Amino acid sequence: MNLTVNGKPSTVDGAESLNVTELLSALKVAQAEYVTVELNGEVLEREAFDATTVKDGDAVEFLY
């Protein structure tokens, strides 16, 4: 899956889609429990991480 992460191209191997929690784990995001996630310009509530799917071509920003 090809994404733009914090403005840079990134690839997650072996996945066509992941939820936000899985993406944080796959990318080994440090202190993931404290990060705010913006997906395609929309800031996500932490409670929505498990239910929100990240797909090929999406833009993700991790805000600390």
Rank of each mutant, 00 (worst) to 15 (best):
E61M: 10
V12S: 02
K8P: 01
E33T: 07
L24A: 00
E16Q: 13
D50P: 08
V37Y: 00
E22R: 07
A32D: 09
T53V: 13
T4M: 12
F49P: 01
E16T: 14
E45K: 12
V20A: 01
V35N: 03
E42K: 14
A51P: 02
T36Q: 10
A48R: 11
V29N: 03
G57F: 03
N2W: 10
R46D: 01
V12L: 11
L63N: 12
T52A: 06
L18V: 07
E33Q: 11
N40A: 01
A26I: 14
F62D: 05
L18I: 09
Y34W: 13
Y34A: 08
A59W: 13
N2D: 05
L18G: 01
L27D: 02
V37L: 06
T36I: 14
A59T: 14
D13W: 15
G41R: 04
A26K: 13
Q31V: 08
Y64I: 11
L18E: 00
N6A: 04
Q31W: 15
T52W: 05
D58E: 03
L3C: 05
E61L: 10
L27R: 00
S17Q: 10
A32K: 10
G14I: 08
A32G: 09
V35A: 05
D58K: 01
Y64S: 11
F49C: 04
L44S: 00
A26S: 07
E38W: 15
D13G: 10
D50Y: 06
T11P: 06
E61S: 10
A15W: 13
E42S: 11
L44D: 00
T52P: 00
A51E: 10
G57E: 03
K8A: 08
K55T: 08
E47A: 12
L23W: 01
V29S: 03
V60T: 02
V20L: 07
N2K: 13
N40G: 02
V29T: 05
T21F: 07
K55I: 07
A48Y: 12
A51V: 14
L63S: 14
K8W: 11
T36Y: 08
E42Q: 14
G7R: 05
N6M: 05
L39A: 01
M1R: 04
V43R: 13
D58A: 04
A30R: 11
Y64D: 12
A15L: 10
T11Y: 15
E47P: 07
T21P: 02
L3S: 02
S10A: 15
L23R: 00
V12Y: 08
R46A: 06
D50F: 06
N6K: 02
V35C: 09
T52G: 01
V5M: 04
V12F: 11
L39F: 05
L24G: 00
G57L: 03
Y64E: 11
V12A: 03
K8L: 11
V37D: 00
V37K: 00
E47M: 09
S17R: 11
T53Y: 15
E22W: 04
L44R: 02
S17P: 08
F62W: 07
K55L: 06
V20E: 00
G41T: 02
E42C: 13
Y64G: 09
E42R: 14
V60K: 01
K28M: 09
N2T: 13
L23G: 00
V35R: 02
N19R: 06
T52Y: 06
F49T: 00
G7P: 02
D58F: 04
T21C: 11
L18T: 04
Q31G: 14
T53G: 06
V37F: 05
V20K: 00
V12G: 02
K28F: 06
G14A: 09
S25N: 12
T36K: 08
L23E: 00
L63W: 15
Y64H: 11
G41M: 04
T36N: 07
E16F: 14
E45C: 13
D50A: 08
L18S: 03
A26Q: 10
F62A: 02
T52L: 05
K28Q: 10
Y64N: 11
E33M: 10
V29G: 05
V20G: 01
R46W: 07
E47H: 11
L44F: 04
F49H: 10
A30N: 10
A15K: 12
A26C: 12
K28E: 08
E45D: 13
A51R: 14
L39I: 08
K55P: 01
S10W: 15
D58W: 03
D50K: 06
G57H: 05
E22Q: 13
V35L: 12
G57D: 04
A48Q: 12
L18Y: 07
L39T: 00
N2C: 13
G57T: 04
S10L: 15
L44G: 01
D50V: 06
V54W: 00
R46C: 08
M1W: 02
G7N: 05
T53D: 07
T4L: 13
D58P: 01
N19G: 04
T36H: 08
A30C: 15
T36G: 06
V35E: 03
A32S: 12
L63V: 12
V54R: 00
L24T: 01
G14C: 11
F49L: 05
N19V: 05
N6R: 02
T52I: 11
A51H: 14
T36V: 12
V60A: 01
A32Q: 11
E47C: 12
L27Y: 05
V5A: 03
D58I: 03
E22Y: 05
T11Q: 11
F62T: 04
A51L: 13
V12Q: 03
K28P: 03
N40Q: 02
E42H: 13
K8V: 12
V43N: 05
T21H: 08
E38H: 15
A15G: 09
N40K: 01
A30T: 11
V37A: 02
K8Q: 11
T4P: 02
K8G: 05
K55R: 11
V20P: 00
E38R: 15
L18D: 01
Q31H: 15
L27T: 02
G7W: 03
T53E: 10
V43H: 08
P9W: 11
E33A: 11
V12D: 02
P9R: 10
V29K: 03
K55S: 07
Y64R: 07
L27A: 02
T53I: 14
V37I: 08
E38D: 05
V60Y: 04
V20F: 06
L39C: 04
S25L: 14
K8D: 06
N40H: 02
V29M: 07
G41Q: 04
D56V: 05
L39Y: 04
K28N: 12
N19M: 06
E22H: 06
V60I: 13
V35Q: 04
A30E: 12
E33N: 10
K8M: 11
N2G: 06
V37C: 04
E61F: 11
T53K: 10
V54F: 03
E61Y: 13
A48T: 08
E45S: 13
E38M: 15
Y64V: 12
M1T: 05
Y34L: 13
S25P: 01
E16I: 13
